[in-house]
Amino acid sequence: SPEEIKAKALDLLNKKLHRANKFGQDQADIDSLQRQINRVEKFGVDLNSKLAEELGLV
């Protein structure tokens, strides 16, 4: 269901964000992850996106 997909995506992105902060990645990478999280919260996951591929939806 779209809600489950959204939850999985947010979980994955939050893990990536945590790792980025923990290991001191570029601020641009961290900002990009934050924008992705905001986009998923607002609009859900686009099944044509790279994120959908990472989640194994495509």
Results as ranks from 00 to 15, higher is better:
I30R: 05
Q36S: 06
K15H: 09
N38L: 13
G56V: 04
L57P: 02
K8F: 07
D29P: 03
G56Y: 04
R19D: 12
N48S: 11
G44V: 01
N48K: 09
G56A: 05
K22D: 05
R39E: 15
S32N: 13
V45G: 01
A9G: 04
K50P: 14
L17E: 00
L57I: 11
Q25Y: 15
H18E: 14
P2D: 12
F43Y: 13
R19M: 13
I5F: 11
L13M: 03
E54Q: 07
Q27S: 08
D31F: 04
D31I: 13
K50A: 13
D46V: 06
L55M: 08
L13R: 00
E53T: 09
H18G: 07
G44F: 01
E41V: 11
S32F: 13
P2S: 12
A9L: 06
N48Y: 10
S32W: 14
D46P: 08
N38D: 14
L17K: 03
S32M: 14
I5P: 02
I30M: 05
S49Y: 03
L55R: 00
G24K: 08
I5W: 15
A28D: 11
D46M: 06
L10D: 00
F23D: 11
G24I: 04
L13S: 00
L13K: 00
L12S: 03
A28C: 11
D31Q: 10
V40R: 00
V45E: 01
G24N: 09
S49G: 06
L47Y: 08
N38C: 14
E54L: 10
K50Q: 12
I5R: 05
G56M: 07
A28Q: 11
V40L: 04
I37D: 00
S49M: 03
H18Q: 14
V40W: 04
I37Y: 04
P2N: 12
K8N: 05
E41F: 07
A20Y: 12
A28L: 08
K16L: 14
N48W: 11
A28T: 10
L57Q: 03
N21L: 15
P2F: 14
S1A: 08
R19Y: 15
Q34D: 02
L33P: 00
L57Y: 07
Q27D: 05
Q25P: 05
A20P: 02
F23M: 13
A20C: 06
Q25F: 15
L47Q: 06
L13N: 00
V45Q: 01
A28I: 09
L47C: 07
S1G: 10
G44R: 00
G24V: 05
G44T: 00
S32V: 09
K50M: 10
D31V: 09
Q27N: 07
I30A: 04
I30N: 03
G24A: 09
R19V: 08
G24E: 05
E53H: 12
V58G: 09
D29N: 11
L10R: 02
K15R: 14
K15W: 08
D11R: 10
Q36K: 07
A20T: 03
Q36M: 14
N48L: 08
L51F: 07
I37S: 01
L13T: 00
K50R: 08
L57H: 03
Q36P: 00
F43P: 00
E3D: 13
G56F: 06
K15I: 08
N21Y: 15
I30V: 08
R39D: 15
K50C: 11
P2W: 14
G44K: 00
P2V: 10
D26P: 15
Q36D: 06
A28R: 11
E3A: 11
Q34F: 07
K22P: 03
S1L: 09
G44Q: 01
K42M: 12
I30H: 03
D11M: 13
L33E: 01
E4K: 07
A7V: 10
K42G: 04
L33S: 00
L51T: 03
E3S: 09
L55D: 01
K6F: 03
I37Q: 01
R35E: 14
N48M: 10
L51N: 02
N14K: 15
N14A: 12
L47F: 08
L10N: 01
R39V: 10
H18K: 13
F43A: 04
G44C: 02
D29R: 14
D46Y: 05
G56N: 06
E4N: 09
V45P: 02
K42V: 08
V45Y: 02
S32K: 14
L12C: 08
L57C: 05
Q34G: 03
L57M: 07
K42S: 07
V58K: 12
F43S: 04
G44D: 02
K6G: 02
L13I: 02
H18W: 13
I5L: 13
L57S: 03
N14H: 15
G56Q: 06
L17N: 00
I5S: 05
G56H: 05
S1P: 06
I37H: 01
L33H: 01
F43G: 04
E54Y: 08
E4R: 08
L47E: 06
D46I: 06
Q25E: 08
D31K: 09
N14L: 15
A52C: 04
D11P: 00
K16A: 09
L10M: 05
A9R: 00
E54M: 10
D46S: 09
N48R: 09
K50V: 10
K42D: 04
G24H: 09
I30K: 05
K50G: 07
Q25C: 15
S1C: 13
V45F: 04
K22Y: 09
N38H: 10
D29S: 14
G24Q: 07
I5N: 07
G24M: 08
L51K: 01
D29L: 15
I37L: 06
Q34T: 10
R35G: 06
L12I: 12
S1Y: 10
A9I: 09
F43R: 03
S49E: 04
I37P: 00
F23A: 09
D46L: 06
K22V: 13
L55A: 02
L10W: 00
S32T: 11
S1Q: 07
F23K: 06
L47S: 06
N14F: 15
F43E: 08
V40A: 02
D29G: 08
L47D: 03
K16Q: 08
D31L: 10
A52D: 02
A52Y: 08
S1F: 09
A28F: 08
L55C: 02
V58T: 13
N38E: 15
K8A: 11
D31R: 12
E53F: 14
Q34R: 14
A28K: 11
L17P: 00
N21T: 15
K6Y: 04
E53Q: 13
I30Y: 04
N14S: 10
L47R: 05
A20D: 01
A52N: 02
Q25L: 15
R39Q: 14
A7Y: 10
G44N: 02
E53G: 07
D11A: 14
V45L: 12
V40I: 12
P2K: 11
N21Q: 15
R19L: 14
V45H: 01
F43L: 06
N21V: 15
Q34I: 15
L12M: 09
K6D: 02
D11G: 05
L13C: 01
Q27H: 07
D29V: 15
V58W: 09
R19G: 04
D26I: 09
A20W: 12
F43V: 05
L10P: 00
K16W: 10
D31H: 06
H18Y: 14
E4H: 09
S1N: 11
G24W: 05
N38Q: 14
N48C: 13
A52V: 04
N38W: 13
L51A: 02
K50F: 09
E3H: 07
V58L: 11
R39P: 00
D26N: 14
V58P: 07
R35N: 10
A9W: 04
F23H: 09
D31A: 11
I30S: 03
S1K: 08
D29C: 15
K22S: 09
K16R: 14
F23P: 04
L55Y: 02
S49A: 03
Q36F: 07
D46F: 05
A9N: 00
E3Y: 08
V58A: 11
L12N: 03
A20S: 04
E53W: 15
K42Q: 13
L10Y: 00
N38G: 07
D29M: 15
V40M: 03
V45N: 01
K16Y: 07
N21F: 14
V40S: 01
L10A: 01
L47H: 05
G56I: 03
L13F: 00
